Every structure is written in structure tokens, then in C-alpha cells.
Amino acid sequence: MARVALRAAKEQARQRGAERQQRREARRGTLRSGARRDGRDPLPLGAAVNGLITERGWETPAAVGGVMGRWPQMVGPQVAQHCEPERFDEEERSLLVRCDSTAWATQLRLLAPRLVARLNEDLGQGTVRMIKVRGPRGPEQRFGPLRAPGSRGPGDTYG
């Protein structure tokens, strides 16, 4: 009689444990990991990053960021030495490029249509619509007691 009662108690304990396990798995949204592939499996880093870029809609900014990293190969070493891309405006689809002299800014403005075509060839048609070229930044203007009245300071040079 004691053996029958013990066997019945063990069976009830097993059933309660199995029910608890099923409730836990149901809350997690998965029954078992098993040997089959599911969304929790590890991914190679490149595939995970590509999935994140696609999921968030970052394809264009990521592509343009890659171009900024390859700027010397895109425009040549001589132009890259004097002009560097600063930022990409996704709304206007324009690339802002800063040059170290006004002469290089003028030269890059003349090369802009060819450069836009080259960028769109790499990134896909219509990714970059225009290139905004900026000349060098002037030194910081300081206002103080030694300033000549009416002068514009270094802004005359870097206008």
C-alpha cells in the first residue's frame, strides 16, 4: 500500500513539474530550442550588421559613409589631399565637401557633375543629387579692445 501511494505521489509531482515547464516555455514564446534553426541562433557579425542596417533603413547613410572612407580612391590622391567630405544630408541628398583653399573649392565646383555621376555609379542612381562645396574656414573672430573700428578682420581674406 505504501508503495502504491509513493508511486502515485511521484507521478503527480512529475505531472506538476511538466505543467510548470510548459507554462514557463509558453511565457517565453518558445517551446524548445532543439536542433532546428530559429531566431535565437548566433549569426556571423557581417550578417547581423547587415540585418540591422536593413531593419533600421540605414542603407543610404551606410553606403555614403563607406564612400567617405574611400574618398581618396573616388577622387584621386591630389584632390583628396585638399578636399574632404564633411557630411551627407539625407533629405536633400547632398554631400558637403570642405576644401582647404578657395582655389581648390573652385576646382571642385567644376568637377562636381563628374563626381556626382561617379558617386551614383557606386551607390545607385539618385543617391547623391548635388555636391555642396565650401571653402576654408577662417580663423575665429575675436572681439576685444584692440579691434580696429569698421574692420572685418580675417573675414576679408576668407570671405
Rank of each mutant, 00 (worst) to 15 (best):
Q81S: 12
A47D: 13
T30A: 12
P72F: 00
A35L: 08
T102P: 12
E86V: 13
V75N: 05
V49M: 13
D100N: 07
E90G: 03
V79M: 06
P61F: 00
C83L: 07
R87E: 14
L52A: 11
S94A: 15
E55V: 01
Q78I: 09
M68S: 05
G57S: 10
A112D: 09
H82P: 00
L95E: 06
G69A: 14
P72H: 00
R87Y: 06
P44T: 11
R70Q: 13
G66P: 05
N50Q: 15
R114Q: 14
G46E: 15
H82T: 12
V79E: 02
A105V: 00
Q78T: 13
Q22T: 13
R87W: 07
R20Q: 11
A117H: 12
R28Y: 03
G34M: 07
V67S: 07
Q78K: 11
L31Q: 08
V97T: 04
S94F: 04
A63S: 14
A103I: 10
T54C: 03
G65P: 01
G76C: 05
G76N: 08
R27C: 15
S94V: 15
L111H: 07
R56M: 07
E90S: 05
F88D: 08
V116M: 08
A26W: 10
D100A: 04
E25F: 03
P77M: 13
